[in-house]
């Protein structure tokens, strides 16, 4: 299993080969509260880094999920639509959103590793 990296918007990305698994961090799910709805991208959609890739909603908040890297959507976790609570229960495991085929692996360099992300979380509190 590859290293997990994070964005300042609290998406995570875990690279396995040339495919990256994208979701929202445990911190993000705890801030949102109970997730009630997700809108996932269409299979095959070409995302550019920073594009709005998905929408996640709790009872009192709605948030866009931005593509942490560029690439094509190769798989979506469609089970989330019926069971959005999975995102709260296991955000960085079975609560993943989508898999993206990396277009430019060098984009990963600009993201935070787990230690950096923890420090970032501490800094915003």
């Amino acid at each position: 299993m590859g290293e997990t990296k994070y964005t300042k918007d609290h998406e995570y990305i875990r690279v396995e080969g040339d495919v990256a698994i994208v979701g929202i961090s445990d911190y993000a799910q705890s801030q949102l509260g109970d997730v009630v709805f997700v809108e996932l991208p269409k299979l095959g959609k070409a995302l550019s880094k920073g594009d709005e890739a998905a929408v996640v909603e709790s009872v009192k908040a709605a948030s866009e999920v931005y593509a942490p890297v560029s690439g094509e959507v190769t798989e979506i976790n469609s089970g989330l639509e019926a069971q959005p609570g999975t995102i709260n229960e296991d955000p960085e495991g079975s609560g993943w959103f989508m898999k993206v085929k990396l277009a430019d692996p060098s984009e990963l360099a600009g993201l935070m590793n787990e230690a950096d992300y923890k420090a970032y979380l501490a800094s915003i509190h």
Binding site: F37, E57, S58, V59, K60, A61, A62
Partner: peptide
């Protein structure tokens, strides 16, 4: 009241 995330007080310009 439900599905409030469609509404202006949460979604603002969206």
């Amino acid at each position: 009241l439900t599905l409030s995330t469609r509404e202006q007080h949460i979604r603002r310009d969206k």
